[in-house]
Design a protein around this nucleic acid. Structure first.
Lengths: 245, 245
DNA sequence: GCAAAAGTGTTGTCCTTACACCCATGC
DNA sequence: GCATGGGTGTAAGGACAACACTTTTGC
């Protein structure tokens, strides 16, 4: 927007100097926070770090940073992600802004939350300060700031999105078995699924490429490995017709 | 978030003064913009106003305002809504933030977009300056700033949400006929729906209360009027199980 | 040979879709 | 009586849920 309601009068003139207008606006500190999810040992995990604020000593916080001048929010989030994980080409999407006036003990700070999905094994954590680590989502608590609320919201967001779009592949290795895929869905949705129906579902979607390789070193019959068919997915995204409460 | 990546060193001390930390953060002007949708003459409309920036002379913009100190984003959006429409208890939800550095000609301004749904006939527009008016969504173009992009995004958001939750009732009068409800869905989704199937669908959801009244002054057989069963809806919200790409 | 998980089909139910005729009202 | 939309039922097809046995590997 760009117009202050209080300023309005019946026949005001058009504003010529937009710069002057904006200079008069109040300003707030703005950050991005990333809920970076990974999948390991059949558990959904999120990347956290020990807070370096004394009042949150021992509590975890999400990775985030100040938004720089002339930086888009997406860029800022991506910068945080890359600085910590070293990864490019990572799934990243904005969830929503959090603006409670007391959410930061240092004063008013508004943050925009991002959800990111990556394969834990495809990267090395870049900085091991502050006990950067993967924490199981289900056992998280006592986070710094409003970060628990942010994680909860991002997790709900993920649960919903993963049922509408095949995002789960971002959390798996390039080659994966159907068992791994199902474990992932079960972990994220918190339900158990029928194996045969699950396989039929994905078979009928035709989004998996059979690469004619098998699992190695498993203590049971090895399963086939698949890749995700990104091309096919890109050319046939969901059409949104049908009311369904 | 709250930690600047560049600041990190192997054994830094915990930060005691959070206020001092935040004072050092760069700040940006922050606004909210509302895509306020209404339904009239079987068309989805959005509330717009003539921009008062000279460089956008004659172009429409959304309603919005600066976010005040210590104001939540939701509050700011609600304030804008109430100032212009005089309405309380209006549906309002955050869509997402827009942060392109050049989106405002006066310099960097980040905005958070909100989607709002209200019944056009239940309110009087509060201020008639700047040609505040309802504009058909389908014929909007040449808006000020990035407001066309914001409207498009909010419209997509609405198309999706209205299929998951019964939001449409916010756009209708308290009492409405099934025909009006169907017109609404057809207008928003841009499809035509089978009348019998549509009625069956809503009948089976059991979210409509038959109030034993009929339409008046229609030049054909009058239809029954219904109210939306808000209580029932609140106690039986959607359960999110099932993968569905 | 035993444990552990892979792989595979069928059936019933439910939901969705497609489709046509009579009815009530205003004019 | 005619135009306009209101109101209703049925049948076919597709999607989903439930369910058990055989196979392959490591040990």
């Amino acid at each position: 927007m760009k117009k202050n309601i209080q300023q309005e009068k019946p026949h005001e003139h058009l504003i010529k100097d937009a710069k002057k207008l904006v200079l008069a606006y109040p300003k707030v500190p703005l950050t991005v926070d990333c809920a970076i999810f990974g999948f390991e040992e059949s558990q959904l995990k999120v990347l956290v770090i020990k807070s370096d604020l004394e009042m949150y000593d021992g509590h975890y916080s999400l990775l985030g940073d100040i938004v720089q001048d002339n930086e888009e929010l997406d860029e800022a989030a991506y910068r945080v992600l890359k600085a910590r994980t070293g990864m490019n080409d990572v799934f990243l999407d904005q969830v929503r802004a959090f603006s409670h006036p007391a959410r930061h003990p240092g004063g008013r700070v508004i943050t925009v939350a991002y959800c990111s999905l990556l394969n834990i094994n495809h990267h090395q954590l870049k900085i091991h300060d502050n006990e950067l680590n993967w924490h199981s989502v289900s056992t998280l608590k006592d986070m710094a700031f409003d970060h628990k609320e942010i994680v909860d919201e991002c997790y709900s967001w993920l649960q919903k999105r993963i049922q509408e779009h095949p995002l789960g592949f971002n959390l798996l290795p390039e080659k994966f078995s159907l068992r791994e895929l199902q474990n992932l869905y079960e972990a994220i949705l918190g339900v158990s699924l029928d194996r045969r129906n699950f396989r039929k579902k994905f078979a009928s979607m035709d989004l998996l490429i059979d690469i004619n390789e098998m699992e190695q070193d498993v203590p049971h019959r090895p399963g086939k490995l698949y890749k995700f068919n990104f091309e096919k997915y890109e050319t046939s995204k969901r059409k949104w017709i049908g009311i369904d409460f």
